[in-house]
Design a protein around this nucleic acid. Structure first.
Lengths: 368, 368
DNA sequence: CTGAAAGCGCTTACAG
DNA sequence: CTGAAAGCGCTTACAG
């Protein structure tokens, strides 16, 4: 958790217009002690025009500037520690440099990871991403675009219901969907985790270790991602000539999930495994088991989806399906950038990982 | 988790330069179908100059523009749905509109909340915040400023060791520290949670319900915030004529914490309470208790700090001290903005909240 | 109390 | 293959 203190020598940092900066390296045009170098300074030092600098540094010089000159420009830029002024670039190019990321719940670790992935890719390209604040329980959703404050280049939306997506499309902005129905063709691109494969894998595993009375604790949320999870689980069981022994729905809250799970566990004959749509639900199922006097995994196997921090904090640790949240955010941002550049990225599916841990085991003896 | 679909009618959104926009409201200067309105359009409609528009909209008009005119300008801006172009404003004003938030670990829920709070305040003021990617275990820390990509207006750093802060100061940028030593006067401002009070409260509570053999599972991290926690706990016990029955240190990882906690629990006479520096450590302590055959809270009380999502996911739920992470991020951003405006916000201490839950109880009978 | 003008640092046609 | 010029939308002295 500590940071190293080396290397932050401030070569770049001292050039902030707000910082008292030492006189810049050679080549400055302005008065003594002037702040950071501009493309003009680079041009001067390389003995070319500003236009050439721009061309070279944006990598659009091929066939327009000689390789030797290009190299000289790059060298001059490096020597001066030149960094393009983003505000100027945006002003000139018309973009806002801002992308809106719309997620159902900011407080959720999954979406925090999606955001981190998107922001990292954005930062590389000099863009920034604004999160749309969650409207959870605080009345009707405000206009996401108004709330963004800044005007936008595009929108990335994760795990939305289709009616919400329809509202988003209303903006007329380039839209990339994450973890959403690929058929819902409002979007220019879709990036999805392979949740169906994840749930099939869970079903296969439970069948293999002997479970026959498997129930589904589903998320009480009408979105593609959760519908897909339920369908995939059913399909896997069906392929083995089996079917679900029960299903209940709960919102993504540990306590509520525990209450709902208790109901599921009161069925006779008692289920031997609970497949949950999400780790939070799985944590609730574990609580319910404990209250009911069932041991996990000896009497009951429990699985989740996501691999949140709490998955390894609970005891026993949760068997789960890890979703590539950061990768989704990153891929979504890349797709949006591609759309903005005129491309058509289409649909991408990212692999998920089955992570067996302590909350699952072979079917209890005498059961099944 | 669902979003409502009302209200996103796109009045603002359709004005993106990238979107095919309907012809704007009256007053546009440019060719037909031109994009979003500029301050010039507002000026024209209000019958004033661009300068007046700028003055009024930035709220610097008092004593320079008549109230009646100011009102007309505001009206015109509203009618046109005018929003200032941030890129232009920044270019002209010299700021970059970007603040760097340096945190020890991005993956941590606490810092995610700090970031959310800072980003929300930033968005209100048309600023954006860039996270410094965690260098955890991936070799020497890269230069945080170089990695930021954009140049910066200022830096907010949370929970840093002082040597790391020294590196940050090297940038010569306005610096606000969060959750850090207020004596470490590198920073223009400090915003801290009242962790000492939180730990004192925990100590007081445990003493009240009869615990006498209290041990401390400390974070193995040399920062102000964790030193302050340990000292405050000791002070509270000392005030009651008691002292710690033991202490061990662990990194913030559930499994490692469990191993270390097992050692702590092997002491004889056995401790009746483990005060942990953090919820992750507390989750580890609960695991250790379980492995050792101790019941929580019947045989052992466990407390944490933070109130992370996992605090209510584990069974029993963790008694903890809730840290106002979002508020810290928000207050930090406000302080930085104040510094940038020439103010001197100084040190601010935010209250914390003791949250008693199932992981603590009266001292076991026959013990103490 | 108000307006005309300059210029922030880029990129992009355009002319050579 | 290269350069001179215009202009993105603001804000800020400056002149009235």
């Amino acid at each position: 958790m500590n940071r190293r203190s080396d290397s932050a020598t401030g070569d770049d940092t001292s050039t902030s217009p707000l910082a008292a900066s030492p006189a810049g390296p050679a080549g400055s045009t302005g008065p003594a002690g002037s702040s950071r170098p501009t493309s003009r300074d680079v041009a001067e030092r390389a003995g070319v025009s500003q236009a050439t600098v721009s061309l070279v540094l944006r990598d659009r010089w091929r066939g327009r500037v000689s390789p030797a000159r290009a190299e000289e420009v790059r060298e001059a830029a490096l020597e001066l520690g030149y960094r393009p002024n983003l505000a100027a670039r945006r002003l000139r190019s018309g973009g806002t440099g801002t992308v809106l990321l719309v997620v159902p719940a900011l407080t959720n670790e999954f979406f925090a990871r999606v955001h981190a992935g998107a922001a990292a890719v954005a930062a590389e390209r000099g863009m920034s991403v604004v999160l749309f604040p969650s409207p959870e329980g605080i009345g009707p959703a405000p206009d996401p675009f108004a709330s963004a404050g800044a005007t936008l280049d595009g929108v990335i939306a994760s795990s939305m219901a289709s009616h919400a997506l329809r509202a988003l499309r209303g903006g007329g902005l380039p839209l990339v969907m994450l973890d959403s129905d690929p058929e819902d063709s409002e979007a220019a691109a879709t990036v999805n985790p392979d949740v169906p494969e994840g749930l099939r894998r869970v079903g296969r595993y439970l069948l293999e270790v002997g479970h026959r009375r498997i129930v589904h604790l589903a998320a009480d949320i009408d979105t593609w991602t959760f519908r897909a999870r339920g369908r995939a689980l059913e399909a896997e069981l069906a392929a083995a000539g089996r079917s679900l022994a029960g299903r209940a729905r709960a919102v993504l809250d540990v306590r509520e999930a525990a209450v709902v799970a208790e109901g599921l566990l009161s069925a006779r004959p008692r289920p031997t495994a609970v497949v949950c749509d999400d780790d939070v639900l799985a944590a609730g199922a574990c609580k319910a088991a404990r209250r009911t006097g069932l041991r996990v995994p000896e009497d009951l196997s429990v699985t989740g989806v996501d691999d949140l921090a709490l998955a390894t904090a609970v005891e026993p640790e949760l068997t789960t399906v890890r979703l590539p949240a950061e990768e989704m955010g990153g891929a979504g941002m890349r797709a949006l950038l591609e759309v903005l550049a005129g491309g058509t990225p289409g649909t991408r599916v990212l692999p998920v990982r089955f992570v067996p841990r302590g909350s699952t085991g072979p079917v209890p003896t005498g059961a099944g």
